[in-house]
């Protein structure tokens, strides 16, 4: 089976006045049809830029400087704007982080859904509207035939995110990029949305990239996990392996930072220091300054090493012990 999405050596840099920001600096990953990939990292690790790069939605001064993104075998890097527009929303859809900001506040839900249908298909407005109502029902909006005439501000945050998800599902895309879709929501709503999306992608066989800083969320939804740090993927593998037996010290640090994993009464674990600025990255392993296992050999960028089947880590001394 050929891969649905193949990203090779992708570099997306931003040419700012202060210098070149290497937000994404050479990442590789592969996604098969129907698979869910969790893209994990701290703020500024490049995970959002990576997902926007797939859609070609990098605004100047940023641009993709190198690498290849193949979707169903078609090269997307350097592909004309008109072709990208055809793919966006139809074959690759996106759900954004903040549902308060993604829908245009002055237009009715109806208008925004119908225009999304009509952007890719020639059908009557009536047919487009009927389909929109159907999809709203599927994502759990009660009485969608009434609610479709409302404005975004008349919905709660969770309901708005459901509407955004419905818009993403309108064309039954092969791939959905979900950029922290539950971060801005209440915990109870988070759980609902995650369960809902899990069900929807399973039903339709849609592949998904779930961008998040929350390993606990990713653990429940993703088949495989890619951990990003300073613009690179530092560990990649099946979620059970990456989360159960992390090989990179950074992944271990992330897992230890989840409060529920700590024994009650014990101090919370944290990774010392801050995520480095990708503006002026020191040579060598970018995580070395914060790494408890740092050694002289870390002064050079470590190559990707295979840890197990389909499990890769960029560390010269990958961890081998089980997490307790």
């Amino acid at each position: 089976m050929s891969a649905l999405l193949e990203v090779r050596g992708l570099k997306t840099h931003f040419y700012t006045r202060a210098g070149v920001v290497k937000a994404v600096d050479g990442i590789d990953f592969t996604l098969n049809a129907g698979e869910v990939l969790g893209l994990v990292g701290e703020s500024g690790s490049g995970k959002t830029v990576a997902s926007f790069s797939v859609l070609g939605l990098i605004d100047p001064p940023g641009r993709i400087v190198e690498g290849s993104i193949k979707f169903k075998g078609e090269e997307l890097v350097g592909s004309p704007v008109s072709r990208m527009r055809q793919l966006r929303g139809r074959d690759i859809a996106m759900v954004f982080q903040d549902p308060m900001m993604t829908l245009t506040p002055v237009l009715k839900i109806e208008t925004q859904m119908i225009e999304t249908v009509l952007a890719h298909e020639t059908v009557s407005r009536k047919a487009a509207r009927d389909r929109s109502i159907e999809v709203l029902r599927r994502v759990g909006i009660p009485t969608p035939e009434d609610r479709i005439g409302a404005y975004p501000h008349q919905f709660s945050g969770g309901m708005r995110q459901r509407v955004a998800i419905a818009i993403a599902l309108l064309h039954a895309p092969a791939l959905i990029l979900a950029d922290e879709p539950t971060t801005a929501l209440d915990v109870t709503i988070q759980g609902q949305i995650i369960a809902e999306m899990q069900k929807l992608v399973a039903e339709t066989g849609t592949a998904m990239i779930w961008v998040s800083h929350d390993l606990a969320v990713v653990e429940t939804i993703a088949d495989s996990v890619a951990v990003m740090y300073a613009g690179r993927v530092v560990e990649h593998g099946p979620s059970a392996n990456v989360i159960g037996r992390p090989a990179h010290p950074y992944t271990e640090g992330l897992l230890n930072s989840i409060p529920s994993r700590t024994t009650p009464g014990k101090r919370l674990n944290q990774i010392p220091g801050m995520a480095p600025s990708v503006l002026n990255l020191a040579p060598g392993c970018p995580f070395a300054p914060r790494c408890p296992y740092e050694q002289p050999a870390c002064a050079e960028i470590p190559p990707a090493r295979n840890i197990g089947p389909e499990h890769m880590a960029r560390c010269i001394t990958p961890l081998t012990r089980e997490l307790t």
Partner: peptide, 29 residues
């Protein structure tokens, strides 16, 4: 730079539609 403009692009809307309807109506008030 607002998210809804980017979301419009991510939905495959034309630039004409985004500027002519979404942006124009937002700034009209």
């Amino acid at each position: 730079p607002l998210d809804f403009v980017k979301f419009g692009r991510a939905r495959g809307l034309t630039e004409r539609r985004i500027v002519g309807v979404h942006v124009a109506k937002t700034i009209a008030a």
